[in-house]
């Protein structure tokens, strides 16, 4: 069978696995870790630097990269060894992405789970927000919704498990945490993460063809807690079309 391409003499990763006849999954491991993320990002950078005829697009995940291709231009059997060679190349230092400082408001109805998340970690809500604000989080991947960036990794001391029963409706802009990850919901949807605030920042803008998602894999994020009146002012200004992602970029 050709659905698994791996040299049996080699350690189990990286591996190239078939995801149907028009995609492959390049697996670098099965855990979330900075060194795995580094390999994933270096692989994506290598793919961008040396395009392979027939490869259409790719998307990084925590420890793997999905690669979509046109099987009538390149076969899986021809592509897999080339992907494996790229995956095995020593991870060059991928250029760090942009650093964003994103405002969010953790007051009242915006943060229904903040008190419980803080309590689970033996902190007051204010102390929890203060520690969260000191972190620089990395964008591991996007998924779940357009522009939904998985930010990590939260230390165990600031994390909490998912809700036992997901909410049927999480409002757009909600800032949430679960299982060592943090994210903001670009669109309203059902969701099981714990809500600790809300950001007025437009997280996904289809009219920005060049960069529709505010955050891209490899970017870094710092959360800046703001008061409700500042949230309202920013939300009003950005809703009116006055949003420039550059204004959230933090100095390096």
């Amino acid at each position: 069978m050709s659905y698994l391409y791996a040299d049996p003499a080699e350690p189990p990763t990286p591996r190239v696995l078939a995801l149907g006849d028009a995609a492959a999954s390049v697996a670098f491991g099965a855990r979330i870790a900075p060194e795995v993320r580094q390999k994933v990002q270096a692989f994506c950078a290598a793919l961008a630097a040396a395009p392979i005829e027939g490869v259409e697009e790719w998307a990084p995940a925590f420890a793997s990269v999905a690669v979509w291709f046109d099987p009538d231009r390149i076969s899986f059997d021809a592509l897999a060894p080339r992907l494996l060679a790229l995956a095995r190349a020593p991870a060059s230092l991928a250029l760090p992405g942009a650093l964003f400082e994103i405002p969010f408001c953790a007051e009242g109805a915006f943060a229904p789970d903040l008190a419980e998340v803080a309590r689970l970690n033996g902190l007051t809500p204010a102390a929890y927000l203060e520690r969260l604000g000191r972190l620089t989080l990395e964008v591991y991947m996007l998924g779940f919704q357009p522009g939904f960036a998985y930010l990590g990794a939260l230390p165990d001391s600031l994390s909490a498990p998912r809700l036992a029963t997901p909410r049927t409706r999480v409002p757009a802009g909600s800032v949430a945490i679960a299982d060592g990850m943090c994210a903001a919901y670009p669109y309203g949807s059902p969701g099981g993460w714990r809500l600790i605030g809300r950001t007025p920042a437009p997280l996904f803008d289809v009219s920005n063809e060049r960069r529709p998602a505010l955050l891209a894999p490899g970017d870094r994020v710092r959360w800046r807690s703001i008061a409700r009146n500042e949230y309202d002012a920013l939300a009003a200004r950005w809703r009116a079309g006055g949003f420039d992602p550059a204004e959230l970029r933090a100095p390096r």
């Binding site: 994506c44 259409e56 697009e57 790719w58 998307a59 990084p60 999905a66 979509w68 996007l142 998924g143 779940f144 919704q145 357009p146 522009g147 939904f148 996904f204 529709p212 998602a213 891209a216 894999p217």
Partner: peptide
């Protein structure tokens, strides 16, 4: 819609 799956776009 192809080309935006890395940004979570189906």
């Amino acid at each position: 819609r192809k080309g935006f799956r890395a940004l979570g776009v189906p």
